[in-house]
Design a protein around this nucleic acid. Structure first.
Lengths: 115, 115
DNA sequence: AAATAGTACCTTGTGTTGCAAGGTATTCTA
DNA sequence: TAGAATACCTTGCAACACAAGGTACTATTT
């Protein structure tokens, strides 16, 4: 393993925990299709691969947190629009709490470290 | 998989990316031994298992981000005190940037979602 | 001196999951 | 009709957190 890769690897690790959370956040704001979700994440510097996103959406669908509908596009193949379910919103609230707790935890450690 | 477990599972995932970061933060403030690190993390609600921590410390040592020294204890077996290296501090700076970027990204999405 | 409790260290096996690399299908344009 | 663009999806690999187990040393009780 390269010393060089530590940071990049950790960026991946950090994203990891937050992916479901941020996807639910995006869908809480409105229905989106996979490519659009990936783009929106990229816009805020959260780079995620297709091979990550598609299986994740399918997983969340199976868990009942998402649903989808097909919709025609004026330019290109049809799109699978995902929407958040009631259960999804409940879980999102829990993830929100988890994220806040983690952020606060890190902030506290940083303060102790005099950073 | 239980619907019930989604949140707990995601807490784990979220911790995951942040573990190396928070351990380096703690050691940047001063040398500590494993059990003490685990306790300090627990104090800020970041619960991490021994089976996670020991291999991680060994990995960071191998990567040259940490060193350690043995030290006698007045009550119990000797302790392995870990300390951060110069390279560790450099990497920590990178992780700090990664964390800030991620936090900002999430914050932006949350704002868009009107949360 | 033997047994127990407390502290500290560590390892193994399992399950989850992000990603790179590949693939298919549809529509539009040259 | 060939290519580009957009959208979907799958497979195999590798990383790694954790539960559950273990060892070793010290202090305390019996």
């Amino acid at each position: 393993m390269e010393t060089n890769g530590i940071i990049e690897n950790n960026r991946t690790q950090m994203r990891r925990g937050v992916l479901e959370y941020s996807i639910l956040l995006i869908l809480a704001a409105g229905d989106e299709y996979a490519s659009s979700i990936i783009q929106k994440l990229k816009d805020v510097n959260i780079i995620v691969a297709e091979g990550t996103t598609y299986p994740l959406l399918i997983r969340l669908k199976k868990l009942g947190l998402l649903n989808y509908r097909w919709e025609e596009s004026t330019q290109g193949p049809p799109r699978k629009y995902y929407m958040i379910t009631e259960m999804g919103r409940e879980q999102l609230a829990g993830l929100d709490a988890a994220w806040n707790e983690l952020s606060n935890g890190i902030a506290t450690i940083k303060k102790s470290a005099g950073k």
